[in-house]
Structure formats: C-alpha cells, structure tokens
Design a protein around this nucleic acid. Structure first.
Lengths: 151, 151
DNA sequence: CTTGACCTTACCATGATTGGAAGGATTACA
DNA sequence: TGTAATCCTTCCAATCATGGTAAGGTCAAG
C-alpha cells in the first residue's frame, strides 16, 4: 500500500504519517525503488491505534509509550493504567480551568444588558484595577488537545 | 518606567509586552535616547486589562477588540457581550470535548486491574479495529488556552 | 505518450510564550 | 573612577500537532 491508501484506511493524514515517522513514533518503512513508502495492513492497525490515542487527547510522547506497551506482551496493565489516569488528571485540571473561565464570563455576561449603551460589567471587570482575582489563570502547557490550528 | 517595572506591575512579562507591541496589540511606546522603552501608569492599566483578558482565555485577536471597545466611550455593550458569549461557546464546546475524553478514559481505567498482568481494556480499546467510535475527536483550533509550551 | 493522480522533500504558518545569545546602557558599590 | 551586576535592546529558535504550498519525480489509465 502507498501512503495515501494507508492514510485513508487509518484516518491519519499522509502528512502526519510522514511526521510520525520523522519523529520516530513509527519506524521508517520500506520504500519502492522510486522512493515511495510501502505499508502493510499491520501498519494500518498501528496507525489506527495512534489515531484513537490522539482522539483521546494523549500527547505524541504518551502515545509512544502506549504503542510500546501495546506491543509488549509482557506489559503490566498498571503501566497502561498509570498513563491513562495521569492523562485523566490533566484533562480534569484543564476542564476545571475552562469551567472557571466560562462561569466567570457567563456571570458577567448575565449582568450585561447587551444593548446600545456603553455600560458593561464585562469591560469593567477586565479593567478592574482592584486585585479581585480572576479565575482560571492557566498555569501549564496544554497546547495540543485541539487538533492543531484548524483555520 | 522601564519595561521590567511595567512587567512586574502588570503581570505581563517583558517578553510579552514587546511581543504585543510587535503585533500591534499595544502601540509603540516612547523610547529614551538610548532606546529603552518608557511606560506610564496608563500603560500598566492597559496591560492589566490585557492580562485579565488572557486569564479568561480570550485570544489576542479578541483582546484587541475588547481593548478597542474598552477605549471607546460610545461602545455598545452588546458588542462586548457578543465577544464574551462567543468565547463562552468555544469554552463550553472544548469542555464537553475534554469531558468526553476523560469519561471514556475513566471508564476504561475502571475496568483495568492495574496489576502486573498484561490484560488491559485500555490498550484493547485503543487497538480495537471495530469502528466503535471514540469520543472527543477534537475538530477545531484551541491551541492557546494553556499558557503556551511550558518548559 | 500525454494527462492526471499520486508520491517525494523542503519550507512556511499557526498561537502564545519562553529561552537564549550577543551586545549596549544604567546603576550600585568599592 | 572603575567595574561588576543588572538592566535593556534585537534577533533567532523552539514548543506542539497540523495544514499548506511549491517544485519536482512516478505511475497507471487512456
């Protein structure tokens, strides 16, 4: 199979397949004489695994760990579970952060008339010089949960 | 005031102040003879406004709009409210997405013994070739809620 | 043998932020 | 006054996963 067919079969774009290969997440594959990458059904399987992991928000680094555990017949399930639960923790922290932002904003918006007049509690809160703490100050990396810069 | 003092007073790093200037979010400020940027209390106020907006997860683009509405005495509060509610929508969509991921993972983890044996429903689900849909496939940009690549 | 669909590599862009290097300015202190 | 420490300046690079584009080679069908 060529890369396009594997991409279609796995749900991972050809771009990303090459990228995953370049960073070592998947091994370098065989090539035809003319340089085309050649894949097997097994590769499709692996790429599906990777895509599903990404869909659950795992980072590439974590996915590398998951793939190697997957392929390790002697793995300990606790190692997998640890990765999963660690990620759950990250997700839940992020969820809380976003919820705080949303709730603050909804509260402010509820008190904003939303008409043609300039008075607006939202702007006032943002401009508030008093140190009333705004919630949700994000404190850690979390860049890659969305599927990259959509646009 | 120099940039360092403004940074400390506003909670926006000197790096980011220069960056905001470079992209036009804040105007180019005056310089001393030797090229140092010079700021006023008013600039601190503006930067605090910006920082608070960021803390609520607004993008730089939205912040630009908010700042200009803030400085517009004739603004319509509905314009502010629209930006806020639009952002709430984005936040809530993201929250739902993350919640689906977390809930799937928690469910799977709950059925994983987490011991030294290899059997693991988490890995099995990731490897599942049947098309049982995994939730939370993120579909849009959302990169910038966390505070950038930590580390 | 041409056309079109595919493949290749190599860059560039995204978004917000941090990091560092190399060098000039200012301040504090002996 | 000298000098060291601390600031400031600009420029470049990296993050993370992904998409885009361009320039060129390959392959299959007509």
């Amino acid at each position: 199979m060529n890369i396009g067919q594997v991409a279609a079969a796995s749900g991972v774009s050809a771009k990303m397949i090459r990228y995953y290969e370049s960073i070592g997440l998947i091994p370098k594959t065989a090539r035809t004489e003319s340089g085309y990458r050649v894949y097997s059904d097994h590769d499709v399987h692996t790429l599906r695994f990777i895509r599903r992991s990404r869909d659950l928000g795992f980072s590439v680094e974590q996915i590398a760990d998951l793939v190697s555990l997957w392929q390790d017949r002697d793995r300990a399930s606790k190692d997998v579970k640890a990765i999963a639960l660690d990620h759950v923790g990250v997700l839940e922290r992020k969820i809380r952060e976003l919820q705080e932002m949303a709730s603050t904003l909804k509260h402010l918006a509820a008190h904003c008339h939303g008409d043609a007049r300039p008075h607006c509690p939202i702007i006032e809160e943002l401009a508030n010089d008093g140190a009333a703490p705004l919630p949700g100050k994000p404190d850690a990396k979390f860049g890659a949960l969305g599927k990259g810069p959509g646009r």
